[in-house]
Nucleic acid binder design. Sequence first.
DNA 1: CGTGTGACCGGCG
DNA 2: ACGCCGGCCACAC
Length: 130
Amino acid sequence: MKPKKKKEILKKKESPRAIGKEYSFFEDVFDVARQIPKGRVTSFGAIANYLGTKLSARMVGWAMNGAHQANPPVPAQRVVNRNGMLTGKAHFSTPTKMEELLAKEKVEVKNDTVVDFEKLFWDPAKELEI
DNA sequence: CGTGTGACCGGCG
DNA sequence: ACGCCGGCCACAC
C-alpha cells in the first residue's frame, strides 16, 4: 500500500518508453489490482473510475491483457466486469484457472460469475480514497 | 503519423 | 426484457 502517488502517476505520462521500461497506465492498473485484498474482487469500471478514466473502462481490461504477464504477477482473477462475471478467464493459463484461484480465495464462483459480488466488491476509489 | 483493437459500460431501440 | 450501437483512452502495427 502506498497512499502517495495516486493521481500523481497519471499526471502527464512522460513518455512511457522514454523510461525504457513499462511505465504507464498499465502500472497503475497493476498496482491497483495488486492492492485488492484477498477474497475480494473489483470491476473494471471501479479501477477505471479510480484512475479517472471511468468513461473508458475498456482500456482497463485491455491493460489487464498484459497483467497476467506482468511482474510481479497481478491477481487478475480478482478483476471482473461489473456483472461479476469472469470475463477474462479465457486469458488465463487454463479456462478454469481463474475460478480455481478465486476458489482458493474463498470466493464462490457460479457459472463464471462471482457469488455475492456486491458484498465482495472492493472499490479502490473508496478503499484507497482518492 | 494514421488506423485498429481491447478481459468494458451505459444508453437507446 | 433483450439486443445493438457508440464512446472513451491507451498502445501496437
